[in-house]
Nucleic acid binder design. Sequence first.
DNA 1: TTGATTTACTTTGTAATTCAAAGTGCTTTT
DNA 2: AAAAGCACTTTGAATTACAAAGTAAATCAA
Lengths: 101, 101
Amino acid sequence: MAANNPIAGLNKIFDNRIRLGVMSILMVNDAISFNDLKQMLEVTDGNLATHLQTLEEENFLKVHKGFVGRKTNTTYSVTRAGEKAFNEHIAALEKIIKGIK
Amino acid sequence: MAANNPIAGLNKIFDNRIRLGVMSILMVNDAISFNDLKQMLEVTDGNLATHLQTLEEENFLKVHKGFVGRKTNTTYSVTRAGEKAFNEHIAALEKIIKGIK
DNA sequence: TTGATTTACTTTGTAATTCAAAGTGCTTTT
DNA sequence: AAAAGCACTTTGAATTACAAAGTAAATCAA
């Protein structure tokens, strides 16, 4: 194994830009709604929903189905595992970036 | 358009980890051979070849088919356009990372 | 000199991924 | 009552990614 392999520490889940975006938003904002994410990332709802599902299946985020009055209000936040995995991914990215400069 | 869209500045070409790895290596090393890249990134040659082709078609890198003695020695290096595009991608990544911390 | 190996690929075929669009069910607004 | 919004799911098509096998020219090993 090449010890200097720059991409070895990257997480495949975060190769996708939308999932990377979702995570980066949720790392600094607690409990963001589906609609907010959709607007922030400028994606279709079907597309966003599938990526959120992927992230949820990986246990990287959790869903809170709540209500505002009688209207459903779904929010998302990162799990401990998601935080850990994302930080590791970011660390790998930083290593790549540092290698360049 | 959401002005705070964190993923807007990312380049689709560099979403792929192998292409990201190739570029990050070539940004700091001039004239790296096919075999060196293959070993550094731990990929199959078919896989590497197609990603190099993609990068070449985008005009992000150029190929030098040279010789060591009478043996072929192909090396790769980034183009000006590749350098620019990659730096922009890295800048977008850094912005995402900075947003997190 | 014959056979194995290396380099730098290309070709092939499959599997996975990504995405938009349309549909669903519930609620709210008009 | 009708239209629109929210939070999805389903569908299907297109793109992408990948390993494995094949190729051609050269080198090295016996």
